[in-house]
Design a protein around this nucleic acid. Structure first.
Lengths: 110, 110
DNA sequence: TTTGTTTATCGTAATATTGCAATATTAAAT
DNA sequence: ATTTAATATTGCAATATTACGATAAACAAA
């Protein structure tokens, strides 16, 4: 098969898994971290920063964009990319919620 | 190809991507969420909770274990699984660090 | 209009992932 | 010792992902 069984999970579970999956690759982690570091939109220049060919970078950017982790806007003959706080905050909240709940009621097993 | 180019990214980037990737599937999200909900080790019973065959569940558990997100310990003829706070906290810290840095210096673009 | 620059898309090859049936393994229970 | 119950492993088929060369598209500059 190779196809993920999404039907039998909740919408929330599928949504969070999709977002998380988009960050599950070192190139996409590197892209987001670079956008963070320069703390601005990147117009061009991204291909030079990454150890990958231009089409590959373009593909990774597309995946991050689909997941809503970054947004891009056309600016002349280049496209500017920046981090989309909204989805990133959603991820942060998800993991905060988890660890908060776990710390409160520390299970005594394992 | 299909093989991820890990050599040219930092160790940290590869590490965080590997952990994140392990959660990038609804079944594995569901497993972690279930372990959270029951707030205890699960000995058996996990197969009944998930809409997947036993070997598939076993495989997903293995991946979560490899990533350090859960830990398992043999308990008679069953194996008990629980969440490993350490790596989950690492994830939380990663996203907290990101959003904190972004909120401080809000880039004015896009 | 032609040229150069930048990003996207197409096509393709190689590898990875997902899922399950069949089988193996392990240990408790009879 | 045999049976039962729970989990892991193997083997396989189908699909997804990763990467890149070639090419297209969009636009600025000459």
């Amino acid at each position: 098969m190779g196809v993920t069984n999404t039907e039998n999970f909740t919408e929330d579970q599928n949504r969070i898994a999709t977002i998380i999956k988009a960050l599950g690759h070192p190139a996409r982690v590197a892209i987001v971290e670079h956008l963070m570091k320069v703390n601005a939109c990147i117009c061009g220049d991204l291909v030079n920063v990454l150890p990958l060919a231009q089409p590959t970078v373009s593909q990774h950017l597309k995946e991050l964009k689909n997941a809503g982790l970054i947004k891009g806007s056309v600016e002349g003959n280049t496209i500017c990319y920046c981090i989309d706080m909204k989805v990133l905050t959603e991820l942060k909240d998800y993991f905060e919620g988890m660890t908060n709940k776990l710390q409160k009621t520390n299970s005594a097993c394992c």
